[in-house]
Nucleic acid binder design. Structure first.
Lengths: 109, 109
DNA sequence: CATTGAACTATGCAATGCAAAGTACTGGAA
DNA sequence: TTCCAGTACTTTGCATTGCATAGTTCAATG
């Protein structure tokens, strides 16, 4: 029982919401997404992000297109689909409900 | 990929925080805890709560004592330990950081 | 003694974050 | 050309946790 594990557990399910939120602004490739998450103080590693994007794509919430890069191999640019936008809005409700519940449970100390 | 699963995932790790928060107010037995969580709009079932309490107890974050009940079998009254209080405060930091990160990632739509 | 309800326990599954190792492509240095 | 570094993407396997489900124990009541 350490705090690092607790952090990992709290992230579960939240990353999807964050990533869909980021892609709502416009398409991006994985390194872009990681940089944006890092700005928000959310460190994510490759082994987490890539499988997650693949999962979201397979569920029809994202699409991608290949684009040549100036340097290095081509990149997968991801964009959000209509289903993705709708799912994102449901996730927002879920997150808001959870935030409220946590807040309530911590009240009245 | 359905919203129910997403809810379950988002709860992971958060329940511990909520329960420690509730027990900081004073000792309680499982049905008390479930009722309090329900008030906060957080539905938890036995199969989730009991193993979780056992885990927290084994990690030294909680204690319990048996108490006879007026009706029905005796109850396990749980209370938080000093380690539990400290861990709760670390979880609070973790939760606050995560909330901030989620908020940031959803900005600038 | 049987039944009912409350309280607690145990088992097994599915989902996800993550570490770790691996593959593939490009460009520059030796 | 051959080797190496850097970037981008992929794959495998593990640990943890919420939850469904079923089972056990105990006290009170008829």
């Amino acid at each position: 029982m350490d705090i690092e594990n607790a952090k990992a557990q709290m992230r579960k399910g939240v990353l999807e919401f964050c990533i869909l939120g980021i892609l709502k602004r416009g398409e991006a490739y994985p390194s872009d997404i990681m940089a944006t998450l890092k700005e928000a103080k959310l460190i994510v590693v490759e082994g987490t992000l890539y499988p997650l994007l693949t999962r979201l794509k397979n569920d029809g919430l994202l699409n991608y297109r290949w684009e040549e890069s100036q340097q290095g191999p081509p990149r997968k640019y991801y964009s959000i689909t209509d289903s993705g936008i709708q799912f994102h809005s449901e996730l927002k409700n879920t997150w808001d409900e959870l935030s409220y519940a946590v807040k309530q449970s911590q009240k009245l100390q």
